[in-house]
Design a protein around this nucleic acid. Structure first.
Lengths: 244, 244
DNA sequence: GTCAATTATTGACGCTCCGTCAGAATTTAC
DNA sequence: GTAAATTCTGACGGAGCGTCAATAATTGAC
């Protein structure tokens, strides 16, 4: 387990190399342009060799997606481990998510490919499980903060409303906004000039709605977000650099 | 334009027939199972004939999606044209959206396929435009209600927050929840027992957050939603029947 | 009713990509 | 040095796409 022969290390390195080659093809030309023949010829290996690493091209996408989600997870962890009350840190997670979508565009895009049922369904369940675990781990980071808020008495425990259900709301609104922003090119033509600002406001209203103290007016909230953003941005950028 | 020869009518009818044949394949076995050869042989026509109607299989999916979205649009229109204040009717639209996802499962699923960039990008821009128009028309229905609420004085006009941006929030949360519900099979394992109820609550909190009078407590809101649901359900079902 | 022009239909064909596997090449173990 | 084990190769069969020359059906003028 610990010790690997030179050959084994070479093979492991090649797995990474395949991903390095595949990623730009996927991002620049889409999934259908990502062919095994093409990857093989770019790597100067035969197709069969590539199949030794990934049993189909969908697996490559999921492998890329897992890498991407690990980055997301790290950003979330950093945000959750910051200073201040739980509500402040949950706002930081919102910013982490924003950062991921805005500044880790490629990783965000890879995640989108992963969600395509075509691709998802053709992958091995092992890889699917890895991704699910990573996703639920991201969610748990947020749920923990919600529970912390409840424990501290800042957030009233609503009856018939679990921590997870609150997270679901935040998750849905962030996720929904991001997908809509990414997939509707003419959002500004529809009257939505600054979707990021809108999303921030909507999250604020959700948190206020839960009764999470201290309640902020939208204006206060937006200012506070900017402040928190200034605090975390360098850290997020650091994580992004380490990842590359 | 108005008068069609018998032949032209036959051809038009065949277009519909192709969609009738393609739909169950797409829904039951996915996009990759939807092959032109298969459609052709099921219809007992040659492949070339099918290509006379749709220049690739992606176009078939978009045609199906347009039909689906027209149904959604009708549901929205029905909800918007109901009785009561704008806020009540906007809640009805939420229910229309819920109905669409829950009870028009097939149409909802077709819409999901349409969003796959693989499929979207290979379709003609004409068809893309038709769909975009339908989508923005759905959105405008909601924006109108928001503006009505503002005009009536029930909904304060927040500065730097347009009607469309509010709609964006509602849209994002509904859309996000629905996608998450549809794509995360183990939502209940994550602690989200009743995503529909959660989504309703989140919408309530968003509306309250905007300051839309009358403000409802979550409990009141949920009761009211049930009441509105009872009123609209038969009408929605009627529309669904007419569509089939 | 005939026949030429027009329009519609056909399915074989060329192409691309997938995933496999028998055999060649290389590495390892002794 | 060599035999066994491992790794690598690329030709191959199969599936599906989209085309287009050939064939069939329809139309309408006489």
């Amino acid at each position: 387990m610990v010790e690997l022969t030179r050959k084994q290390r070479e093979i492991q390195e090649r797995t990474r190399e395949i991903l390095r080659v595949a990623k730009p093809i996927l991002l620049a030309e889409g999934f259908q342009a990502l062919t095994m023949d093409r990857v093989a010829s770019r790597m100067e290996y035969a197709k069969g060799t590539i199949y030794g690493h990934f049993s189909n091209k969908e697996e490559i996408v999921l492998a890329l997606a897992l890498e991407a989600m690990r980055l997301r997870q790290k950003l979330f962890q950093k945000a959750a481990s910051g200073t201040g009350l739980a509500r402040r840190r949950i706002m930081a997670i919102g910013l982490a998510s924003e950062f991921y979508t805005q500044r880790c565009t490629e990783e965000f895009q890879v995640e989108q490919w992963m969600r395509h049922s075509n691709i998802w369904d053709k992958s091995s369940s092992d890889r699917q499980t890895l991704i699910r675990n990573c996703e639920s781990s991201c969610m748990q980071i947020v749920s923990e903060l919600v529970r912390e808020g409840q424990a501290m008495g800042d957030l009233p425990t609503l009856e018939r409303m679990s921590a997870e259900e609150m997270v679901f709301g935040l998750w849905a609104i962030t996720f929904g906004s991001q997908i809509l922003t990414a997939s509707s090119p003419s959002l500004s033509a529809l009257g939505i000039i600054d979707p990021i600002r809108s999303t921030r406001i909507h999250c604020c209203q959700l948190l206020n709605g839960f009764g999470w103290q201290p309640i902020h007016s939208v204006e206060e909230y937006l200012e506070l977000v900017d402040e928190i953003s200034a605090e975390y941005l360098p850290q997020f950028e650091q994580i992004q650099r380490e990842y590359r």
